[in-house]
Design a protein around this nucleic acid. Structure first.
Lengths: 187, 187, 187, 187
DNA sequence: TATGAATGAGGCTTCATTCAT
DNA sequence: GATGAATGAAGCCTCATTCAT
């Protein structure tokens, strides 16, 4: 009669605890023991669900990537620039709603680990590039796929400034970003 | 008083070595010894010029802040939107020319240390806000100081994407950024 | 009382699994879990049959001691030097047939545990000493009980060399050992 | 003005401390801290001279191998069987004089580490084989190189019994061993 | 009886910092 | 000033053992 434990759920719980800890102290300063304590388990138990402290960070990344993917997938099928605005609002809103994840993102950027952040942003640009392509005539001449990088940048750059200066109102920044990045490229 | 000069020069040399090391391995993974080795001195000697490993990071931040300040100070006195374009080009160019400093910047973001990153970006936005104000009539209605954050974001966000995916051509991104952030806000 | 029998059989099975594991990785590197896995049971179940990991090693020792005793007991009643040769052949053959037990023997030597290895070898020498005594006139003058230690040594020393260099053909070493240790002491 | 330290001497001192500790508790039970304490230094300092705990064991092995080599090298050039007796006496004497090293030898046997014990014993047998060859006519017919293994075995086997039962008088065992292994093979 | 998740003490190792030279 | 050997606190991880199921 084996003890019944929902491994996936427990893993998830640890991951959530880890995000809170990472957000509070940064990954570098977060001890395995901190994570365990936050999750309400013993230090050693973390290793029943993750191979190493780094693996926890990877798990956090995966969770973030999945969440980001869900935002992109939920844009509906309105006009492309409408969807672009929704994407900007959705992303900034999601980040603001999960400030812990957002805070950890910066650690992920600077982690050499094999997290393939590059692919994540490549996909991101790809997706926005598609929207721009689709927008076609609606855009000023000269604006196209190549400008996806700027839109991604505006979003991530807002994130950076918010993290560095939590006084900023992140969701409220969606307005100015849309003013510039959506209205500014309309024909 | 040559002693004083020597001290300052040595400090500077260590700082430069530190930047290279931080850029290579990230701050978290950089050992005092690595910095010393890169600077061609003994481990213990680092402590003759800095109080601690963290103090070195602070020194690096100060150097970065100064360099960034110099870019802002060198914009000349053309028309405001001209100066804005110059600022974008100058900043991205400066970052690309000093990839080591740029790489370290991300570590600085995620460092809890008392580096007052917030002030740096506040000044940055302030400065751009001023330009926007000055541009006045040249801008689309509704565009103003509040949009400085987007311009800073676009720049820093390009930096992020470049760091995460060094395949990107950072200076070349100045074009699209200007298309969106300068041309896009013109009346 | 089938329960009792089952218990003993299970204990035996675990012991056999343990020997295989110890032989493979050495006692120090063998985990309780390895033993359990090899025995096809759960980690915790080992503790239903043994008090501790060390107790398993003690059990293995007891099993070895018993097996060695059986060899000694099976020498028949031919002439003493005949029996000595048989003992040498039997022991080396037994070790070669149970390489796992042999391998573990070395771990037992270096284990401080309360295994009374000393008594085992004392008995061993005692027994061979008896044979030598019995051989009496057949031996060169000056050879006697005191040389039992050399015969035991020759056997165990072959074991050592074989363990350290499995390329050696252990049973084939019986010939040279007998040449020296039996023929060499004959009058 | 660098602090002057004789690295080799310090390494040696740590090695000697390690041998004492290993002999006392066995390698498996010896903690890095024990070694450091025995050497009168701090735990971390061990790592200034060795890469790891295992590396210390390897160092001990190397020291043993060297000492054993020195015994072999000091046999002079008397008649071969004379030299064989000297080798037996020398080896058992050396082991008895360095009981700590001897005790550690057993740990070395059972260590999977890349210590090439096999080569050590191969050389050992080789050397004795040479002596036997050289003895030629002096030996009983049928005795030759192939019996080197038995002589090595007799020596190591005495060591085993002594380690397991320190009551034995190791140097005194040289007599019986020579009776059997030298006198017993003489023509 | 059997399980295997959980525990937490304890080991190895790293490295910022100190300090004798 | 400069050095680098030494320190020892602290972190990651392992694993024997326990115990709820």
């Amino acid at each position: 009669m084996p003890k019944r434990v929902d491994r996936a759920a427990k893993r998830e719980a640890i991951l959530e605890a880890a995000v809170r800890v990472f957000a509070r102290k940064g990954f570098a300063a977060s001890r395995t023991e901190d994570i365990a304590a936050e999750a309400g388990i013993a230090k050693g138990s973390v290793y029943l669900y993750f191979d190493s402290r780094d693996a926890v960070l990877e798990g956090v990344f995966a969770a973030y990537a999945e969440r980001a993917g869900r935002v992109l997938a939920s844009l509906g099928d309105g006009p492309p620039l409408e969807r672009l605005s929704a994407l900007i609002r959705g992303t900034l809103g999601m980040l603001a709603e999960h400030p812990d994840h957002a805070r950890v993102l910066v650690d992920l950027w600077s982690t050499a680990a094999p997290l393939d952040m590059a692919a994540l942003y490549r996909d991101y640009r790809e997706m926005i590039g598609e929207l721009l392509e689709e927008a076609g005539e609606e855009l000023r001449p000269g604006i196209g796929r190549a400008h996806a990088v700027v839109i991604v940048a505006a979003i991530e750059g807002c994130l950076v400034q918010w993290l560095v200066d939590p006084g900023l109102d992140l969701p409220a920044l969606a307005g100015p970003v849309i003013d510039v990045c959506v209205e500014g490229i309309r024909a």
